[in-house]
Amino acid sequence: MAEQNRFLDRLTNRAALRRWARAARRAEATDLKELRAQRQHARRLRHHLDKLIRIAESRLALPRIGSTRFPKPNDTDWAYRPQLWRGPLRNPGLSAVVSNATMGEEVKIFHDCTRSELTLRQLRNTRVADLAPFGLQMDVFGFDGSYLSLAIDLPDSAVKDLRRRHLLRMEAIVELENPLRIFARLNIKHGPNVEQLVMELPLTDKAALVEFDLAYSKLNERRVERLWLDLIFEEPAMNQVILRDLTFSRRPRAEL
């Protein structure tokens, strides 16, 4: 039935298109009374068509929800965009955020403020340059704590076949209201130990990239259990941070 209805709709649309094309060709010779009625009908029709075109162009210009598309280095054997940046959250915003609060299933926030003046909000990316469907906006007003961090859990696929010869890349698109230092700390749990590698994000441009070379770690390849990454914000008071995108990829280092 649905297929039959679609077929009938196509026939109706084609007939309407032919009718309006014929009316346009004959407009120079059409009786004025009939032409006036056609003009009124065409204006009503144009109102709906313009609205449809405007909404369609806006929606089709947005990054598609669920998109995992982003540039990756050659020889990449694993890549990932966390869920917060690719799909809508059930609860897209938090205010007066307490420590250990969650945004979706993969992102947690940690701080030691006695009074939280922090808000988090998932936003829809709308710029032509955006590849991620969603971003994360963090507004910090007063801040009396000593640390503020976002912890991003990576899936089990990040652990599979992980070796010390791997380079793990994190790329972020960051917008800052005021200058701010941000550090990325990669945490690798292997057995009873947690290996940590720390790098500062180079924020000379909105796109920030860091690569963790696991050769400099003491990783026990046979006992890797999980990976997560902390984004640590230094002196974040009275600032707004927008993470337009956050992606991860992994590739083996070239043999020397």
Rank of each mutant, 00 (worst) to 15 (best):
A184S: 15
R54F: 12
G135L: 06
W228K: 05
I55F: 05
A42V: 02
L214C: 04
D31W: 01
E175T: 08
E3M: 07
A96G: 13
I232P: 03
I109G: 11
D139H: 07
V98H: 08
R81M: 09
M103E: 02
K51W: 09
K33D: 13
D213M: 03
A79G: 00
N187F: 12
R115A: 06
E34T: 15
R223I: 00
Y216C: 12
R43Q: 14
P133Y: 08
F183H: 05
W78Y: 12
D130L: 00
L180G: 00
P155R: 06
R43P: 00
L186R: 07
D112Q: 00
E117S: 12
R39W: 14
P73V: 11
S116C: 14
V194F: 00
T204D: 14
L231T: 05
F70L: 09
L201H: 01
I188L: 15
A207Q: 13
D9Q: 15
R250E: 10
D230W: 03
D153P: 03
P92R: 04
I55K: 06
F233R: 01
S146Q: 12
V128T: 07
I232W: 06
L120A: 03
D156S: 10
M103N: 06
R165D: 10
K108S: 13
R10P: 02
H190G: 03
R164L: 05
H48Q: 05
L131N: 09
H48K: 02
A158Q: 08
L186G: 02
D50T: 03
T204G: 15
M170N: 03
L186E: 04
R90D: 15
A15Q: 11
P73T: 05
L11R: 14
D9T: 11
K189R: 14
V210I: 12
I152V: 15
Q122N: 01
V194T: 15
Q137R: 14
D130R: 02
E177I: 03
A254E: 07
L11M: 13
P252Q: 12
R250P: 13
L246N: 01
K160I: 13
Q196Y: 06
A237K: 08
D213V: 08
V159T: 15
N220E: 14
A158E: 06
L219K: 01
S95P: 02
S58L: 09
L136G: 01
A184E: 05
D112K: 00
G66W: 01
R44H: 09
F212R: 03
E235F: 10
P192V: 04
R46V: 07
Q4D: 07
A129S: 11
P92T: 11
R18H: 07
R54P: 01
L229K: 00
L120I: 01
D130K: 03
A42T: 13
E34M: 10
L167S: 02
L219Q: 07
K206W: 03
D112T: 05
E177V: 04
E235K: 08
Y80G: 04
I173E: 11
R185N: 02
L256Q: 11
L62R: 13
M170W: 01
P155K: 11
E28V: 13
V128A: 07
T247D: 08
P252D: 05
E175C: 00
W228C: 02
G191I: 13
R43A: 08
E105R: 11
L120H: 04
A16T: 06
L89V: 09
P179K: 06
N13S: 11
G66R: 01
F7M: 04
M1R: 07
M1I: 11
P88T: 06
R69V: 13
